[in-house]
Design a protein around this nucleic acid. Structure first.
Lengths: 228, 228
DNA sequence: ACAAAAGTGTTGACATTACACCCATGC
DNA sequence: GCATGGGTGTAATGTCAACACTTTTGT
């Protein structure tokens, strides 16, 4: 017998969505189309239906604003301050999401007035407690990027080592030594030289590499631990 | 205007409570006094009142079963499978809790038939998805114990180095080298020799140390990172 | 004096840092 | 041929792992 005072909360998901445009780390934000705070900037998210799974709800949000499926997402943290939402008790579970910047189609978004990428280094204020959520997301990304192969989710399937290094530098907010960085890369035999090179550059083009997930998983099962 | 179909969920907290008896890593479990699953073993927890904060709810649970306040607790993860509770949609936020084994008074518990410590290495089955939650807790403890000063929450204010080392060995489930372990300890000047020694031992007694949190925080603010 | 666990340093292997020049391309 | 960023090795330093004996206590 449910005690009714308890079954009166709502559950939502919010996505801290990172992208990389080749120069800066970006965060995907929407201009809210619904009350409360219509027109203000917010993390993408939505209420979770009574019979809906959280991962599925996060996927739905991501699909609706980017047109993409199977995007990397990991649970970040639950935020449940009693006063975080004006309509009542809404507990939100935040997800850390990574996707390939260029593949996101931001035009077909249905529940936002606009969906845009913003520089993580220079973010506008957000509604509710989304500033706090975003900060936890940035910190988690920073903590995990060196011990997990997350960066490859943000780059194209084929990427160059200068791109990879710059991404690490932007996330960690510090410069890395090119030769030391590349030495570590060379130990990773799941990073494959595609024998292709970049085109349309005004200077020496870089080699293109790809991340072979099967070989990575195989190495992990043999005790390998990622470290960059 | 709230859409009512959304405001029908309940929020609960569950605590993965670790202790250390000097020999083995322990988990605190209760025998449920309420339906569903009355009499079965479960993580301590409870529903969160509409105007109650999650941290406060976790504190309340911990106080009610141990008589202790100000116990270490950190949010672990939210669990929200649609079918995890027979009475309806109940999202639970799990907390990782650490406390001093001997200080817990398990006699005065009000909402459980019994509250007992169980060996983490040899646990009975638990209700709902609590097995899964417990496993995430054990894994998180393992991941974090080397990079955060968490072990001192599990030991008495004054502890010996053999105790500390054994605790690490139980959590990491591997033997550590005594001399290498102690060398790292010696670098930590926030671990203070109390100039006292153990008593009532049939062999050479060990020195007692204490963790000076102020000095630790001070070192952290100067860029120190804990590592053991 | 014996049993049991506490306490103590050195060495070699490995990983990390610092550092400067030549190379390939488009214009 | 020049401007631009891509690509490459080595030496010094710091960190980590392996290893055995002496000390202190209670009985």
């Amino acid at each position: 017998m449910p005690e009714n005072q308890f079954f009166q909360s709502a559950i939502s998901v919010n996505c801290v969505v990172f992208g990389f445009d080749g120069k800066d780390l970006k965060l995907l934000l929407i201009e809210r189309e619904l009350e409360p705070y219509e027109g203000y900037l917010s993390l993408p998210g939505g209420l979770v239906y009574p019979r809906e799974d959280l991962h599925a709800a996060a996927s739905k949000v991501l699909h609706s604003i980017t047109g993409m499926n199977h995007v990397y997402r990991a649970q970040l943290k639950a935020f449940a301050a009693t006063d975080r939402h004006p309509f009542g008790r809404v507990i939100t579970v935040a997800y850390l999401c990574l996707l390939r910047y260029l593949k996101a189609d931001l035009s077909e978004s249905t529940f936002a007035k606009s969906t845009k990428w913003y520089d993580v280094a220079n973010l506008p204020p957000l509604v509710f407690d989304h500033d706090k959520i975003m900060k936890v997301g940035v910190q988690r990304l920073r903590e995990n990027i060196r011990s997990r192969p997350m960066a490859f989710e943000l780059l194209n399937e084929k990427f160059t080592l200068p791109e990879l290094q710059l991404l690490y530098e932007k996330i960690l907010d510090k410069d890395l030594d090119k030769r030391n960085f590349r030495r570590k890369i060379n130990y990773m035999d799941f990073l494959e030289d595609t024998n292709e090179i970049q085109k349309h550059k005004m200077y020496r083009p870089a080699k293109l590499y790809s991340f072979n997930r099967e070989r990575y998983e195989d190495a992990v099962s043999k005790g390998y631990v990622f470290s960059l």
